[in-house]
């Protein structure tokens, strides 16, 4: 079994001590654990973000397997549980908080008390808009990192990171909506997820996001 010190050591060797300390003390909420959220969680776990709050109400379905970080063995499991299980395989020492619930304006009031960074990773556009508006209105001191426009394939370079306000970061191409025969595919969703994870990393490390 890899010890906590060994795992930390290989990260410090690559990231540096100061960076690693900041990553370890960061608290990030990931709202939605689909193609965006599951990938964001993998990325942040790998670099050693210390505290992740995973939130999703759904269970793993066969339709998720084309782009989300789940396998056949996870079918039927709650995404919170299926993802937590895998993150703990990557880093057995990560601090995870899981909430199996649907985020609404009614329950969002105290949900993010521990986090300074909130990642919007939903798939339904109304839910995306609700969460971003809620956070900007009620948590002006927290950062919201969101994604919109990532369907299909190709045109990797049109997916970008934009700073809309000081605390609202938007990733995606802002045009590629899901339509018939133009659904979500793993590579392009992962590009958007990597933009979100990279923006979150920059915020944690107090560097410009773009």
């Amino acid at each position: 079994m890899l010890s906590k010190e060994e795992l930390r050591g290989v990260r410090v060797a690559r990231h540096g001590e100061e960076v690693q300390q900041k990553l370890e003390s960061a608290h990030v909420a990931i709202c939605g654990l689909g193609g965006l959220g599951s990938n964001v969680a993998f990325f942040l776990t790998r670099i050693g973000v210390g505290h992740l709050h995973l939130i999703d109400f759904d269970r793993v379905d066969p339709s998720n397997l084309n782009r989300q970080q789940y396998a056949v063995r996870h079918l039927g499991m709650y995404k919170t549980q299926a993802l937590a299980e895998q993150l703990l395989e990557i880093d057995p020492y990560i601090d995870l908080r899981c909430d199996c619930l649907k985020i609404t304006e009614g329950n969002a009031g105290t949900l993010f008390d521990e986090e300074t960074i909130i990642c919007e990773a939903f798939d339904v556009p109304e839910a995306k808009a609700m969460l971003v508006n809620y956070c900007l209105e009620h948590y002006p001191e927290k950062y919201i990192v969101s994604a919109s426009g990532m369907a299909g394939f190709g045109d990797s370079n049109s997916i970008k990171t934009q700073k809309i306000t000081s605390h609202f970061i938007l990733c995606g191409d802002q045009v590629s909506e899901i339509r018939e025969n133009y659904g979500l595919m793993a590579p392009r969703v992962a590009i958007a997820a990597a933009h979100e994870a990279n923006a979150i990393t920059s915020i944690i490390l107090e560097k410009p996001v773009c």
């Binding site: 990773a121 798939d123 969703v189």
Partner: peptide
């Protein structure tokens, strides 16, 4: 003025 439109997918 900035109007951000959210589209489905994630």
């Amino acid at each position: 003025l900035e109007v951000v439109t959210f589209m489905g997918g994630g």
